[in-house]
Simulated scan of single mutants.
Amino acid sequence: MSLNVEEVRLRLPHIELAAHLYGPEDGIPVIALHGWLDNAASFARLAPLLPGLRIVALDLAGHGHSDHRPAGASYPIWEYIQDVLQVAEQFGWQQFALLGHSMGAIISVLLAASMPERVTRLALIDGLIPFTGEADSAPQKLGEALRAQMALAGKRKPVYEVFERAVQARLQGVGAVSLEAAELLARRGLMPVPGGYTWRTDSRLTLPSPLRLTHAHAMAFVRNLQCPVKLVVAEQGMLLAQPNFMQLLDGLAVECQQLPGGHHLHLDDDNGATLVADCFKAFLAAA
């Protein structure tokens, strides 16, 4: 794993984000987007294996070292799209590729489908469309979200006496990870507090969504993709755990490759990172 990474802060018009930069300044522009409750360290193994690319691995808003959204705001997935576009503006990139894992892959799809003139290629890791909800469940889901928002003020983040306990907690979190991957994410995701360590992430990220796209909405975005798309599906990941996921890809212009490993296969170990890099090297180099 290369240590040739630069830490930067990006002052956008509406928020300040942190990021890791990889590769030469004149490399092919790529913005890398991590999964829910992860951070830029998600690409610590993979990014150094993708030569010739200028990779901006973001801490998405509310994650890692990036700012939280202001009081009264929330984290609907489409709000991240404006953040990514403003990051591209900071670098002067009118066009760029997207490398996304899990939630980051979903954000990438929504952005590329909405602004096809800006995105050259999509490299997706075990993520494609968001969890969906149909019209008849909307009142119940909104009620659940409102109740959770009202209860949030009375909740406190966990405090871990030592770093290792936080790592163990991450091992039990959503999306199984290896011990090494959990340590990488925890090093960037924790902050010291009285009594030990707690997560930097905004507690509002754990709230249920008040509104979800329907399945038809979500698939309309995928069908509107105009750039080349390559999807890595982890054999022990989250996508294949969804009923009939491979049938969902029928007729779509998405190149799909299954690889051994779990949901964080690009981060869990060097072998998984190498396999994912081999899938994406030539693909992203052609952006």
Rank of each mutant, 00 (worst) to 15 (best):
A61S: 15
A71Y: 03
V119A: 09
P158V: 08
L3R: 12
L179P: 02
N39P: 10
P48L: 10
S42C: 13
V167N: 04
A287H: 02
V167H: 10
G35M: 02
Q86H: 13
L85M: 14
Q242L: 14
S203G: 12
S74M: 05
A166Q: 10
Q140R: 14
W199S: 10
V162R: 14
H68E: 03
A73N: 06
G35C: 09
P158R: 06
L99Y: 11
P228N: 11
R69C: 02
G251F: 12
I31W: 06
G237L: 10
A113D: 08
P158C: 11
G62F: 03
R45E: 09
A73V: 00
D136Q: 14
A182K: 02
L239V: 03
R9S: 15
S2Q: 12
G143T: 12
A169D: 15
L213H: 11
I31Q: 07
V174K: 11
Q226D: 08
P192Q: 12
C227Y: 05
S114Q: 14
H266D: 00
P194I: 05
M191D: 00
Y22L: 01
Q82A: 15
C227W: 04
H68D: 03
L184G: 07
V254H: 07
L259S: 08
H101P: 11
R187K: 14
T201A: 15
V222M: 04
D268L: 03
G100H: 08
L60I: 00
A40R: 14
E255W: 01
L213E: 08
H68R: 13
W78S: 09
G72L: 09
V232W: 04
F96P: 01
G195R: 08
R9M: 09
G127Q: 03
A176S: 11
K230M: 12
A123T: 03
A57I: 11
V162L: 01
M115I: 02
R200D: 03
A18E: 04
W93R: 05
G100Q: 10
E16I: 03
C227D: 04
L190D: 00
R200M: 05
H20L: 14
L33E: 00
G154S: 12
A216M: 02
F283L: 06
L50F: 03
E161S: 13
A138Q: 14
G261L: 04
L46G: 08
S203E: 14
N224E: 13
F221L: 04
E79I: 00
Q258T: 12
T120H: 02
R223Y: 02
E134S: 10
Y80T: 04
A234V: 09
S137T: 13
